[in-house]
Design a binder for these strands. Sequence first.
DNA 1: CTGATGTTTATAAACAGCGAC
DNA 2: GGGTCGCTGTTTATAAACATC
Lengths: 668, 668
Amino acid sequence: MRSSPRRPLILRRRRLNLPNQDGVSGTGAPEQRQTAVIDKVESQKQNTNLSEPILSESATPEVNRPSGSLADPSQDANVGTATSSAESPTLSGVKIMGHPTIPDTQLVVIPPDSDVERIIQALTVRGRESSGPNKFILLTGGSSSFHTQVEKLGLQSKVEEIETVQLEATAAAPPQIIEEEKNAVSKEGLDGSLTNIHWLGKMRLGSGDGKADSAEEETSGTDSLKVEEEHKAPAASHLWQVGAFERPPYSYMALIQFAINSTTSKRMTLKDIYTWIEEHFPYFRHVAKPGWKNSIRHNLSLHDMFVRESPANNKISYWTIHPQANRCLTLDQVFKQRTPELSRSAQGIPGNAKAPERKMKPLLPRIDSYLIPVQFPVTQPLLFSTLETFSPDLGVSDGPRSCKRVKIAPKVLLETEATSPLAPVKSETDSLKSQTPLGFPRRQANGSRRKQQLVTPRSQEPELVLPDNSASDSGLDNDFSFLEEAPSQLTQDEGSSFKTPVKEKFMKPPASSTPSKPIAEASCLQPWEAESPLARDPLTEFSPVRVSRSAALTPFKDNYGTLSFWETPFKDLPYFGSPLDVMSTCSPASPQTETLETPTGARKRRSCSKELQVGGSSNRSLLEGLVLDTKDESLSKILLDISFSGMEEENSIGTDSTYWGQLFNELR
Amino acid sequence: MRSSPRRPLILRRRRLNLPNQDGVSGTGAPEQRQTAVIDKVESQKQNTNLSEPILSESATPEVNRPSGSLADPSQDANVGTATSSAESPTLSGVKIMGHPTIPDTQLVVIPPDSDVERIIQALTVRGRESSGPNKFILLTGGSSSFHTQVEKLGLQSKVEEIETVQLEATAAAPPQIIEEEKNAVSKEGLDGSLTNIHWLGKMRLGSGDGKADSAEEETSGTDSLKVEEEHKAPAASHLWQVGAFERPPYSYMALIQFAINSTTSKRMTLKDIYTWIEEHFPYFRHVAKPGWKNSIRHNLSLHDMFVRESPANNKISYWTIHPQANRCLTLDQVFKQRTPELSRSAQGIPGNAKAPERKMKPLLPRIDSYLIPVQFPVTQPLLFSTLETFSPDLGVSDGPRSCKRVKIAPKVLLETEATSPLAPVKSETDSLKSQTPLGFPRRQANGSRRKQQLVTPRSQEPELVLPDNSASDSGLDNDFSFLEEAPSQLTQDEGSSFKTPVKEKFMKPPASSTPSKPIAEASCLQPWEAESPLARDPLTEFSPVRVSRSAALTPFKDNYGTLSFWETPFKDLPYFGSPLDVMSTCSPASPQTETLETPTGARKRRSCSKELQVGGSSNRSLLEGLVLDTKDESLSKILLDISFSGMEEENSIGTDSTYWGQLFNELR
DNA sequence: CTGATGTTTATAAACAGCGAC
DNA sequence: GGGTCGCTGTTTATAAACATC
Ligand SMILES: [Mg+2]
Ligand SMILES: [Mg+2]
């Protein structure tokens, strides 16, 4: 089962389902299980030295407001109800305020030491009993104790036991047992936390050393194995840590960014990329098939964010990250040193406390569709220009450049019948978007799949649809569809003992159009497959998905909150490399135009992308949080994009703003 | 051997080597083998109604000229030597003129009925004996007889025999024999023609019917096989033709374009794409694994040229081709009806003349690096803006937009020591590009790999490097490196009988970083693999590469010239879908700006891309041709981009221009 | 709850160019 | 000096995981 491609499965995107739906349908097991996925405040701190508000507070608030098309009166009331500490005793100390733009949604700031599980319960009850807000965005300050506490909450009930089983029995525990565990518990709602459990602590579970040695000797053959280990230890402090031979939970794209961004020149040759990755992730040196280098090259070529350049007179060529796409992913951002409280949180683990364990925060997937704007009405428009606001130093004119107004967050269509409140102006076709005459308006949101914004048909509107400023979008509105209700789709599949009853995919030619793994029927083991013992660890063989479906091992033990950096392939800015570019060239304009795409102009100094700098600017912060939707009883992890410009002046904003300003400062 | 991914191998990109190097080194076998790859005049005829020259002839000729930095005096003489019918008897009727910009290069227009092989020989001799031009671009008018003749030339000498062997013995001929054939002949230079031999005539070679039947019955199992065949025959005129069950030589990307462009609305749902492809290529319905639909979806998502859109109130979503990337690939453009002269050209084939045989022109790969500009000094600049010149109707300002000067043709560094003659102005770093102090200036061209333009380091030049008009490039100059000499790297590998001596890749873990097929050692045959007999045809199993290396079956029999349309994934224009776009939005500019990226603005009417329209415009033509390089004795297939604006006025241009104008008109 | 649709990532592979032997 | 081989780079194919509807 190792021969097939195996995605790193960085972090699952699927929304988490609320476990305690007892109050609604009385499914028994009251209050039993709470899927509390903890999230980590992001709030990048780069370029914090520039502290002035880039945008004045004179921005038009109307742009940010949903133009009052709400049918729900509680929505508008939301905005003013802030700082109302919840009346529920469990909600004491919790700050709640309405989301400035999203209807039926409240922002819930949780104190660092509160009981997140109970808070979720209380919010769920509250959301059900009232016709008002039914979505709650949970977030907290930067204190990590909160996050670990939340994690513990999710783990304490049952998963911790499974974890113990895993820890002590390693491969001895048959998958059936684990499957029972999962089915007995909640068989859902946890797998969001289970994503990256395998990464780490595998070596320490007793199956480590012997296998590691054999892997070393066989995979790399006879060459330079032990020699390499010694003479190269630049950042090799974690080389001998536990879990170092596990496959890292990062994609090749992320690994390449780690490598390139580790240099000061922000460029690296292919060979150096190989070496860097091998040094920092011994998995690739010792257990991965040699094809991993092919994958590295493939990623370099495929993603436009990686740009090859050659210094002047050629010869060597360096790989760089396109500056507009560089999120400055670095390894130290995802390496998590085990702080005292963190190790305290991992108390269920009989861990040998030997040395700094190799903790890595799994990366969120590219979060463009998870990014939820929290835009206070005094600041810049909801949709801001990265270039203008945060990189005026580029010296690019970029005036009428790719000035497409793009949504920060994916589309949301509230189940309330009201016309989409987030499509304010200029939507002549949208405004009369009376639902399709079929059936009920239940959830006709167009797909919130991530990449494509789903262009409107535009064959009807003959004139400019995206005038870049007036209409926030042209029928494509903010997409929060992932916040909507989702029927819990992972029911118990207790019929089959070993794996989910995936039809019969054994002897028939594969019927589904997307192929699925045959669950590894010892299929024609290749030589290199037989010789990487780590890879053949039965615990490792499970893909997280399959684990979450059948065997619920790997609880949430070492999920120290996930670090969220964008990793984008950077495929949209006009740049070299396209056959189209080869054909199309701009007219002889003045030599001074020097648009953004000019490599020299765009990266006078290699730095991280503007969005990252945004995170460090004074009026904006990115932090992860949870969205609790009491309608569908789902709990989703999101990334919040909080912008706020009223802090410095302390003016014009109400108590909410003041409070949020404090929180904002706290988060930074 | 079927389980591994198998690329369609549309057409090989590698340059063809000149076979008759007898004159140089006297390798025996004089004049024995001529790899004459025929090329087909393209000259798209869309929008031919607009006949006025869009650009006036007032363009500055200096821009197009290499600024006279040539060290070779024969180069400048080239420009004036046109219409000089060659003195050689074999070159009678051949028009020869110097390339207007490329040094040491002559354009050779061959009459329709000339002997291409002899012309190549004569040109080779001429190129060797003189210090003058050593590169010859061969092209001809639109008459297809010429092309087929050239094809025949390539086949007549020896490949035709091999073809005969293949035809009569089918799979009986052991590969050794064919290998000997190839080795005895020229063991190189042919494989360029062999690329798509497998596609077609497989059924008619005697191994057809039985296998086809079994394939039908087994792959599709019991379902609806014969039923489907009858009730759906919309464009099914070629359904029962020979070769209809072979895998088409087109990539998924091309197939999707065929499908979408077949509709008048230029959009199609996924299911319709499936259906269209299945109907027009029964291979997918009957022999392909069901995973092919997964691949279709993958391609739709991966390539930015495919854009999903939903009409107004959602529900169904259509897939469209981004108008700027749509080359209007259609199936009828690649379907080749067997014309009388064409069938005459295929005389060597004992073909049953039954019905219209399923002839398909293999597509050239994306030809951005094959595009050779032939720019006459009176017309528009060498590098033109697609948007400006050919789509003023877009109404886009695009003034300082992505005005990066992009090379049309890849870089060429002539082996003459002179400073690169194609980097005329404004190259402060280039002008003193004294060769790297190592050794000789032999071929220090930076890699002409296709996609990336290899950004200059720009850390040294602090100021605008690509001023968009003055310097044609900044260190990256036109890349004709594929025209340079290439050591014939396919020598005889007669050591091993069956396959090239690829080290020992059998039991060791794969050593190379790019994996290679183990030549199909009956590896764990999957059920669906065993049941597609067509796919298991030994002739089909050979990838062209392996064929060209070891067994030289599949000669040039039915290569009716290749159709060259661009197929580009369209990855560079700013557009929806990127995480970057999600974050970055332009400032509140005027609603009128409506940049090019606006979907509605860009595609008021769905049509083909501008480049295609260019082909139909009066002053420009695309046609395939050959490049004969007598230095390295290579013969490469290229795509010429001939622009010419002096025709209507008949002014200012010398006899060359007049002649070329005639030719140009002839080509259109 | 399943299947169709869509998005990403992984992996294999073919192949081109080039430089080192 | 030519041939071979390995490294680098580009594309395409295929499998797969997973999300949404
Ligand atoms: Mg790239
Ligand atoms: Mg697409």
